[in-house]
Amino acid sequence: MEGTERAFERLVLEHQDRIYALGLALTGNRHDAEEVAQDTFLRAYRALVTYSPDRVRELKQRAWLHRIAVNVVRNRVRGVRPRLVELNGSEPSPGSGPEEDVLRRAEVDQLAARVACLPPRYREAVVLRHVQELSYAEVADALGQPVGTVKANVHRGLKILRGENHGDGDD
């Protein structure tokens, strides 16, 4: 029992940045990102409590957490499109960082918002592959899709992000 609690503590400390970044890339804003990341860890905790010690040891934590996070996002955004307009710079950074940090932060937020506009299947593929830098095999596993499908979705997603026309019969 105590073992699970310590294990979870380590899990959170080790993966909090990656899962938060994932949430940001998938939802497009920091508020939702924190909610998604919190939800992900809480679900992970509820699952960990029920796992046997062997199962916990063999867990591929990174892939497992990514899978949970993708599902959290899928469940919450079902039918709700992320809103863009009010997000740019609406949340000032806590504390007064150097100006370039603020600029950097705004750029990141803008990019996240752009990524969040992609249709879900492209967004998930692109984010896991190029933001989180998982291998194609890991992405396929996290999304529960064949590798070929993932590759195609990443390709199409990137194309849209680069601003190329996505209605040119490629689909």
């Binding site: 959170v12 909090q16 899962i19 970044a21 890339a25 809480l42 990141v108 990524v115 933001v131």
Partner: peptide
Amino acid sequence: LKALGGVKAPAGFAERVLAQA
């Protein structure tokens, strides 16, 4: 996109998660 992946969780995030759990 890579830079987007380098974003850090906000301060106190881990504590909030542990408190919620």
